[in-house]
């Protein structure tokens, strides 16, 4: 059994409850156990950093300090140094604080001075901060995930939406690519879903602009929804509460703004995993989304034939071959130099 510390983040308890519920539902079949960081606090999202530097990093670092304390109290068997954050913004903030405290030692010193006022300390580099999907793809593995599928999502066309803060800036080189990472695609394929080619997979959902500059945000949401719709997606799959919130809760207002009538549901990838593992929608927070996924999910079960690439000699007006795609091994080796 794999055990990790969990930093849920504020959204998981409110706007992204469906994420929390569905995450919990897939723990058991995948042999995973998460232990929550006791008394964790908000990571500050993108707001704290724009006001003051040291308080922003101290706020984040309190969580790292609590986590490393908690590890110290664990017994040898279940000990871990990995903190799992299911929210991309939380993941980035935790990872960033850990990284910058090392890159700029003076920041580490000051943050520790602040932590000391609360009786805490954190030695940068102690923890390994990782996102939920990282754990699922690289620790649990696609084989095991594929093995747990009892209701393949055949026929469901999914736009894989990774968002920004997960693959970038990627201080620890965890992802196959910063722009077009394949981890979510691979995972969705393992569930049997038809993954559409979605070039905007790591484009921005607007972040906090829905709050402070809605028109800017609406345009960003429109681009994502319009392209997914254009390419025939039944729904989008996300790994981040903020992305889900912006695309789901603001889609209606965006439609008003542009006079459009898109209906593009967006679910957490864990909800799709739960479905594929045979769990019922009610157990996975399905139905909590404002742009409902009912029609989209009605399609599950449809078989789509797999097409093969043509090969052989080139006839006069036949297309020219594409460059060879990198193998999985090469992707890890090349992209992350």
């Amino acid at each position: 059994m794999n055990k990790y510390l969990l930093y849920p983040g504020c959204s998981m308890e409110s706007s992204a409850k469906a994420y929390m519920e569905s995450m919990n539902a897939i723990m058991e079949p995948l042999d995973l156990r998460f232990e929550e960081i006791e008394d964790w606090n908000c990571c500050g999202a993108t707001e704290y950093l724009g006001i003051n530097l040291i308080p922003a990093y101290s706020l984040i670092a309190r969580n790292l300090a609590l986590a490393s304390d908690q590890i110290g109290r664990m017994n040898g068997m279940g000990r871990t140094r990995t903190v799992v954050a299911p929210c991309s913004a939380c993941y980035l903030n935790l990872a960033k604080a850990d990284y910058y405290m090392q890159e700029r030692p003076s920041l580490g010193v000051k943050v520790n001075e602040a932590l000391a006022a609360g009786g805490l300390q954190y030695k940068p580099g102690t923890l390994d901060v990782r996102h939920l999907i990282d754990i699922l793809v690289y620790d649990v593995g696609l084989e095991k995930i594929r093995g747990s599928v009892t209701r393949p999502l055949h026929g469901l066309k999914v736009a894989p939406y990774m968002g920004c803060m997960l693959p970038r800036p990627d201080y620890q080189h965890r992802w196959s690519d910063h722009e077009h990472p394949t981890e979510l695609d691979d995972l969705l394929r393992a569930l049997g879903a038809e993954v559409i080619d979605y070039p905007l997979t790591t484009s921005c959902c607007g972040g906090h602009m829905t709050q402070i500059g809605p028109e800017t945000a609406f345009e960003l949401i429109r681009r994502l929804v319009a392209d997914a719709d254009d390419r025939g997606a039944d729904l989008m799959a996300t790994v981040c509460p903020m992305c889900q919130m912006n695309i789901d809760a603001y889609q209606n207002e965006m439609n008003h703004h542009f006079g459009t009538d898109y209906h593009m549901p967006i679910l957490f990838f864990t909800q799709l995993m739960g479905l594929a593992f045979g769990r019922e929608p009610g157990e996975l927070g399905i139905g909590m989304e404002l742009v409902n996924a009912r029609n989209a999910l009605a399609r599950i079960g449809v078989e789509v034939p797999i097409t093969q690439e043509p090969s052989g000699p080139r006839k006069k007006d036949e297309g020219l071959p594409m460059p060879r795609r990198w193998t999985r091994h090469e992707v890890r080796k090349e992209a992350v130099k």
Binding site: D177, H180, M322, P323, R324, E334
Partner: peptide, 15 residues
């Protein structure tokens, strides 16, 4: 230089 490394330019992905 292997242009697939600059994935934002789409070589190998965009025909």
């Amino acid at each position: 230089f292997d242009a697939r490394r600059v994935s934002n330019y789409g070589y190998g992905r965009l025909p």
